[in-house]
């Protein structure tokens, strides 16, 4: 049983590392900010989920699993909101964004 748990932990940690590599590459190589925000969001959600899953399987204690689930719930609540706000501030502040997306113009009203 012990080796199965080890293999599962290593597998999920490897998947998480793959997602993190995706996130880092996207954040540094993309030029448009929405793409970079998106790839950062992948690191915040998917990679974090696999890290926490691997930690859960690796520890095996019920209290640790519950605490890790709380951590996951908290991070899944908060990091997408900050990602959303990065995108939203870009949406309101960037005047060149009209080249990429259709939007109503908020600037003249304020």
């Amino acid at each position: 049983m012990e080796w199965l748990r080890f293999i599962l932990t290593a597998l999920f940690l490897g998947i998480a590392v793959l997602f993190y590599i995706t996130a880092v590459l996207g954040t540094f190589r993309f030029r448009f900010i929405m793409d970079r925000v998106h790839s950062g969001g992948i690191g915040d959600t998917a990679a974090l989920f696999f890290v926490v899953l691997a930690c859960m399987i690796g520890s095996g204690e019920i209290m640790t699993i519950l605490k890790l689930a709380l951590v996951l719930a908290f991070m899944w609540c908060t990091s997408p909101v900050s990602t959303h706000f990065l995108g939203q501030i870009e949406y309101y502040m960037d005047r060149q964004l009209n080249r990429y997306v259709e939007r109503e113009d908020h600037h003249e009203s304020s």
Partner: peptide, 19 residues
């Protein structure tokens, strides 16, 4: 507040209310 729409953002308000 109006410029950044923080006071009208349902996502931020809901998450803040719970967190």
């Amino acid at each position: 507040d109006v410029y950044f729409r923080t006071s009208q953002d349902r996502i931020l308000q809901t998450i803040g209310f719970f967190v």
